[in-house]
């Protein structure tokens, strides 16, 4: 839509101004790592972060959220709860931006999920271009998520002393110009942006030994691959890989009540296909009892099933599942093993 320039010194005033009217969430340091959390002080904002422990999906699909409140007793009543507030989500990397677009599809397809969609609709996203890999586990270049052409309201690129701000929506433009101090980009700014963009590509490496577009076909031939038993032997079935995954959206639903059993709330909580009870029915039968089958299910969802359902690969190459895995199960190695390219 238009390209603007936001001086780095103007970021803190912008964040402060936004905080008056919005919940502002951005990357900030937590110990040696980074997390997406509400920004209380602009100094907390770390747009130079590498990766976060949890992806920004936690803002749109919280780890736990209320779906309904109810009263119990002889005439029980139930009322929906859709918890959403105007939010600005700052500093989303492009891998996570692709993941949010995937979640948008999942929660708007077939049966629209008002809880997610209302929150999404009230969220304005300032994404940021990655100029170098988060660490050795990133494989965004292989997954085609190294940059993004859509899915954001404003997309920032670090030009050194200032950010180029690519404004894609009216909401983004209104926010940037109303709350911030910006100027329109000049030809020199555009040239600088092109230099920066050109320079970033060689810093990232392809880590899959094949084109990610081949993943659905490769996996369709790999159902009986010996890899699954090998992963099953190593997997602790802790579910960390799915909890940190920006595209994992499976959930459990449960009720909480007060002590008097007169009222309660229905909640949903992130769940994991890696946990033993995930596919177990009340009668006791477990349809994915083996860890090997559960790891296969995760790989299949990331590389095949989600793609077949909504047309997007379920993996964006962020590398979080690799970092989170204690026994060091590595999805890049796994995909490469299936490809057999060595």
């Amino acid at each position: 839509m238009s390209l603007w320039i936001l001086d780095k010194g103007a970021v803190a005033p912008l964040v402060n101004a936004l905080r008056a009217d919005y919940r502002v969430i951005g990357p900030q340091a937590k110990g040696p790592k980074f997390v997406f959390d509400p920004i209380e002080d602009p100094a907390q904002l770390r747009l130079d972060y590498n990766t976060t422990i949890l992806p920004p999906k936690k803002v749109l699909q919280p780890p736990e959220e209320r779906l309904a409140t109810f009263s119990m007793g002889s005439e029980p009543r139930v009322a929906p709860v859709v918890e959403a507030e105007p939010t600005v989500l700052l500093g989303v990397h492009t891998c996570d931006l692709h993941a949010i677009q995937l979640l948008d599809k999942v929660f708007s397809t077939d049966y629209p999920d008002a809880h997610y969609l209302e929150r999404r609709q009230q969220t304005i996203i300032f994404s940021i271009e990655c100029l170098e890999p988060c660490d050795e586990h990133s494989f965004c270049k292989s997954m085609g998520t190294l940059t993004a052409g859509e899915g954001y309201d404003v997309h920032l690129t670090d030009l050194g002393l200032a950010y180029a701000a690519d404004v894609a929506t009216e909401a983004g433009k209104a926010l940037l110009t109303r709350y911030g101090t910006v100027r329109e980009a000049t030809d020199a700014d555009v040239r600088r942006l092109n230099e920066v963009m050109g320079a970033k590509w060689p810093r990232f490496t392809y880590r899959l030994n094949f084109d990610a577009a081949e993943l659905p076909a490769l996996l369709s031939m790999a159902y009986d691959h010996p890899l699954w038993d090998e992963l099953g032997e190593r997997c602790y079935a802790c579910g960390a890989c799915t909890i940190v995954c920006p595209t994992c959206y499976c959930f459990n639903v449960f009720d909480e009540t007060n002590m008097a059993l007169t009222e309660g709330e229905r909640w949903r909580r992130w769940d994991s296909c890696q946990l033993d009870e995930f596919a177990r029915v009340a009668g006791g039968e477990n349809f994915r009892a083996a860890r090997a089958a559960r790891q296969r299910h995760r790989f299949m969802r990331k590389g095949k099933y989600i793609y077949e359902k909504i047309g997007e690969l379920g993996c964006v190459g962020c590398g979080r599942c690799i970092r989170a895995c204690i026994p060091k199960i590595n999805i890049v190695d796994g995909f490469n093993t299936i490809h057999g390219g060595g």
Binding site: A279, F287, H297, E308
Partner: peptide, 19 residues
């Protein structure tokens, strides 16, 4: 077929049989 289900609308993931 019987499966564990938490949503009934193709989102929660529990009832998935392969794809």
């Amino acid at each position: 077929l019987e499966r564990r289900m938490k949503c009934g609308v193709g989102k929660c993931g529990h009832c998935q049989i392969n794809d």
